[in-house]
Each structure stands twice: as structure tokens, then as C-alpha cells.
Design a protein around this nucleic acid. Structure first.
Lengths: 344, 344
DNA sequence: CCGATTGACTAAAGCGCTTTATTTGTTTGT
DNA sequence: ACAAACAAATAAAGCGCTTTAGTCAATCGG
């Protein structure tokens, strides 16, 4: 089956190729009558623009690139990520943009992917996730002048537009809340330590702990899996000065931690309060339901996508868009700290 | 910054454009010495093939398309899906293929997406998920002769190559196991009723129930969310002849169901046995740990991707690839049915 | 009534690459 | 020693589209 080309359309409509092109692209230079005739001809023979040809003559690809510097096998673990993607897609779908995802083995490979996307005109823009300290992707993308939106910030994003949420404030609020419930030993089971947002949360946690004069505020880093979350919890709860509250960096680790507490005959929330960063269905259906730092992740992704489209459209865009900070949603895993659990 | 083209490479290497093209594509017609010189020149100026130009002159795009006929907002709910994607990516990443995902509003829009991908040479092949009865995508893709791999089967896939698992056998096994534990009233809380694999599981469940002469074997359909899973469970457990075992179609619903049981003062597994279709970290870290029908979803995706590459390579491929059926992994949510719970 | 303007349309170049046909130069067979 | 065969390299066409420069006729101002 032969794909119809624009010259087939032009022939059928009885006009020149250029007239057909103008008509099909809503450009001036053709009468309305002709425009309709061309449009009809295109519909009749089922013409679809060959995007390669359009790109080659200087057009756009209607593709946004997303390189993923994580092992493919762990993509499924973090619910945050998929929700973000679905939010991005929800905005991109309407104007017909597609999202091109490419898993890359490491940071260097990711740089190559950007260079190749840029060199080969493969994408109109890229979305950068998992920002790290001194991230080499930032200067590269600045140099290539490839339209970019960074998920994260507000620091470490160079001159690139980015969308960020005030994670620090959320961390501070949460520690404050737990402290107000009488907790004096609070731990944080965090995600990957080299991600910038992990660091920011770490710092805020630390600062808040100091200002609330907590007795202890340990931070343990994990790879976001339930397995490591459980291990970290087990270790923390085995200490004679075990924490009375733990803040987890995702919900799967929070669930894992609650299982460990159960295993060690500690009751949640009587003996241990649990808070999960990022709300999810899981937090809502668990019993006890998990207190969570809720945010609209899909909305976050949607905002990223909209900024991306703005950047591509080329108008001057806001360099930094702030989305609402995570909101503490108290449920049944947080309670007053038991008296008598203070350190010996 | 100007992107270098193949003629820049050719000039720098002191050869013709065609020689450069042959050299860079590993084609015969150039000496090894020249080939190396061209390669070096390309590296030095950071040349990347313009994929649009290559596509236009009949090459491949190195992109696999995946259209998603679901609302973008529910993408994040089903862990199965993301794991499948990560499995696909793990195979596609090595030969440099990217995965283009496009969320579409409905089935008709998906057909348009295929037509447009085909007409515009945008993808080398497509992967079809969420197979339905009399799926209109199958005949369209057959007609377009767009390389396709269907996730699912073994029926309803027309002449297209597909990768399937024997879900029916798994359903039968599970019912048999529960019956052997003395359960006589088993329910199934299923996913979307128009998906073909849901139907197949439904039928197998029904058949097995009949052959085990169960007293009841209700099936309730949901949208895979914890919310609907909880509702369905609540309704089932409120019946005077409530089931003593429930088979859930995903783990989030299983967790939701366990919470409902707890809420109704029914203990798992003493009063209610629970089995989740598809294992997950969640099943492992929950307490009690959830008995699950485990399968290697990422491996499934990887197999799909490999078949896709084979189809594109154009050799004659197996029309139907079977991956191992889900394996029942008994954990702590399944136990003997209590006596005295038989129907009045 | 004539040159200037405008609107509708077309011819043709060019985007960067692959590939076919062709040329050039070197071996080989006899 | 000469044609045949081969290897190495090149010229040029063409993929489907956009866009610039241009043609042609109708309209306008003075």
C-alpha cells in the first residue's frame, strides 16, 4: 500500500504542490474555496503529513524527549514517575505531541542522547528529571539551546526554565507537626542521596529538627524500594533510642516500614508514627490509612508540559514556575508520642 | 550553533558525500583506511545523523510507537503497565531504539494515530496493549502492514505476532488451590470487563468453579482502582453468603480489600483468603504478606520488544510467543477455610 | 487609460541523507 | 600486452515537504 503524498493531494485537487501545502498549513496565499477543495482531497485519499519531510525542511517534530537515567527495571517501582508522565501526557496529547522516552544506562549516555537528539532534529524539546548536584546535563542543554524544562529546582537549574515545589517547607511543616505531637526522635528514610531534591529535603529536615530541638533526627538513604525501606526501618527500630516517628520518601517504603513495625510488635501509631512523602491510593486504602504529604503529581507534570509548549512556542517564558508545596494530610498513622519513651 | 551535516564530514575527510555515507553506515565500497578517516572526522566535529533525512530516503526511524487508549490520569494506577514499559525499554535501549508513547482519548483516536504514524513514517513498528473483543486496531494494522506486536492473546490477534501468557491456567490453578483449602465460595474482583484478558480470566474462573463444584463464584468488574476494589469487597462481604476467598486482579485492590476486611472485623486469612493477580513489592511488604500470582512482567515486556525487533528485521518470526504462566506464590493471606462457614 | 498594487497561484530550490549509475584506477587472466 | 574483472570513489537523482521568488490577471488611484 502506497502512502499518499502531498502531490497526490495537489493533483486530485487540481492545484500545485505549493498551493496544497499552503492550504494544508493554514497559510495565506490560497482562496477559501481552494483551501477547502484541498482539504477535502486530502481527507478523501487519507493523506498524512510525512513528518520526516516536514522536519527536513525546517519544521518541528511534535515530539518531546524524556531521557531516563535510571535502570529500566526500576522504572516501575516509583509511582511518582509514572504519575508525572501521565500528567505530562495529558497536556501533550491535545496538540498532538508525543513523548519519546529513552532509557539510558548512565549520565554520560544521557548526554549523548541529547547531542544526538539535537544533531538529528529528533525532538522539539526535552524534559529533564532527577536533577543532581552539578548536573552536567544543564550546561550541555544550555549550550545546545535545545528547548528544555527542568523538573525540580529552584537551584541547580542554571538558566533553564524549571518547575519546582517547595519541598523544604513541606519537610519543615511535617517535622513541626510531629514535634507538636510530642515526638522528640524523628527519623527520615530518604531516597537516592545524590538527587538534588533528596538533598534539599535532607537539609530542611535537619534544619527543622534543630530548630525544634529534637533529640535525634537520623536520615537513612535508600533506593526507594520497599526492601531497602524495610531494612532501614528495622535498623532504626532496633536502636535503644529508636525514633517514635519516621518520615518516608515514598509510600511503598512507608508500607514496608509499617510491616516491619508490626513484625517487631510495635503498633502504629501508638508506638510509631508514620508519614509518607507523596500521597497515593495505597496510603488511602491501607489500614491504618497513612498520613501523607500530598501533592498533585499529575498536575505537576501538566504544568511542566505546558511550560514546555510555551518554551517551544518561543515567547519569553517564566524562568521558574512554582507549584503548590506538598500538603500534610493527617490520617491514622500519626498520633501523640507516648510518654515514657523519652531517652534514658 | 550549526549542526554539522554529512557534507561537513565528507569535506573534512576529503571524500565525497557518498563515500562518507557508505563509510558511516558500514556499507561496502570504501577502503578501511577511508572508512576510519571518515569516522574520525565525524567524531571530531560531533556529527549526528539527521534521522529525518534518513527516514525521508527510505531508512528506519528507530522508534517504536505505543498508543495508550486510556485516560492519561489513570496511567499511574496500574503498576503492571509501567513494569511492562520498563521491560520493553530494557531491550530497546541497547540498539538505540526509543519508545514513543502517545495517550489517545479513545479507540477511534488510536486508529487515527496509527494511520498518521504509518502515513508519516514516524515509527518502525507499534506495540498494541489492552486488547479488546473484536478490536478494530487489529484489522487496521494488518491492512497498513505496519510491523506490530500484540501484547496478549492467543486469540483475537488476527494474523499479527503476539506474546501471551496462559492466564486461564493460572486462574484454574488458583481456584483449585483455594478449593483444596476447603473454600466453597470464592469471588473474583476483576478489572475492566471489555479487555480480552479479563474475559479470558473470567471464563477460566467460571469453568474452574464449575469443575470444583463451588457453591458460589461471583465476578465483579472494576476499573482497577483501590476505591472500586474496596467497594466491591464491601459489597461481597456484606452478603450473608459472603465468599471465604477473593481473587483480585491487581495488588492495589487486594490491599484495599484487606483494609475493608479489617474494617468489617474479618481477619485475613482466618475469615477471608486473599490472592492478588500480579505480584509486586507491595504484596511482599504487606503484613500479612499477600499470596500472589507472580509473573515476570518486565521479562514479558522484554520478550515483546525482542519480537518487535525481529519483526522489524523482517525475518519470518514466530506468530505466537508464549511466556510462562503466572505462578501461584502462597504467602500469608491464604489459609484453610473455616468450618462452620458453609452456607445455611 | 496606464502604471502600481494586490490576490491567487505556480515553479523551483533546498533541507540532509541514501542509493543507483557511472567513472576512474588497479589487478588479473591469457 | 590487452581486454576483462574488480575495487574505490564520485556524481546525481530522489525521498516529501516548505518556502522564496516569481507569474499572471484583476483591481485601483490619479
Amino acid at each position: 500500500m502506497k502512502r499518499p503524498t502531498i502531490s497526490d493531494v495537489a493533483r486530485r485537487a487540481g492545484v500545485s504542490i505549493s498551493a496544497a501545502s499552503f492550504a494544508l498549513n493554514g497559510r495565506p496565499g490560497v482562496s477559501d474555496r481552494t483551501r477547502q477543495r484541498v482539504q477535502r482531497a486530502a481527507d478523501e485519499i487519507g493523506w498524512h503529513r510525512n513528518s520526516a519531510a516536514r522536519v527536513l525542511s525546517g519544521g518541528t517534530t511534535n515530539v518531546i524527549g524524556l531521557a531516563l537515567p535510571r535502570p529500566a527495571t526500576t522504572l516501575g517501582v516509583e509511582p511518582f514517575f509514572m504519575e508525572l508522565v501521565s500528567g505530562i501526557e495529558s497536556v501533550l496529547a491535545a496538540p498532538g505531541y508525543a513523548l519519546m522516552m529513552q532509557v539510558v544506562a548512565n549520565a554520560d549516555a544521557e548526554l549523548d542522547v541529547y547531542r544526538s537528539w539535537w544533531g538529528g532534529h529528533r525532538v522539539d524539546g526535552v524534559i529533564v528529571v532527577d536533577l543532581r548536584a552539578d548536573d552536567p546535563r544543564i550546561p550541555l542543554l544550555e549550550e545546545l539551546a535545545l528547548p528544555t524544562v527542568v523538573v525540580g529546582g529552584p537551584t541547580g537549574t542554571g538558566t533553564l526554565p524549571h518547575v519546582w515545589a517547595d519541598d523544604a517547607a513541606a519537610a519543615t511543616d511535617t517535622v513541626g507537626y510531629l514535634a507538636a505531637l510530642g515526638h522528640r526522635r524523628i527519623a527520615r528514610i530518604a531516597g537516592l542521596p545524590d538527587l538534588l531534591h533528596t538533598r534539599r529535603r535532607d537539609e530542611a529536615f535537619h534544619t527543622a529538627a534543630t530548630s525544634c530541638t529534637l533529640d535525634s533526627a537520623d536520615v537513612v538513604h535508600t533506593d526507594y524500594t520497599g526492601l531497602e525501606g524495610a531494612q532501614a526501618t528495622r535498623r532504626l527500630l532496633s536502636s535503644p533510642t529508636r525514633p517514635t516517628a519516621i518520615l518516608y520518601d515514598n509510600s511503598i517504603m512507608a508500607v514496608a516500614g509499617m510491616s516491619v513495625a508490626d513484625e517487631m510488635r510495635l503498633s502504629v501509631p501508638a508506638d510509631l508514627s508514620v508519614v509518607a512523602w507523596d500521597d497515593s491510593q495505597l496510603c488511602q486504602v491501607m489500614r491504618p490509612a497513612i498520613t501523607a504529604l500530598a501533592r498533585d503529581v499529575a498536575g505537576y507534570g501538566a504544568r511542566v508540559a505546558r511550560l514546555m509548549l510555551d518554551v517551544i512556542a518561543g515567547g519569553d517564558v517564566e524562568g521558574a514556575v512554582e507549584v503548590p508545596a506538598p500538603r500534610l494530610v493527617p490520617r491514622s498513622t500519626t498520633a501523640f508520642a507516648q510518654r515514657g519513651l523519652s531517652p534514658r
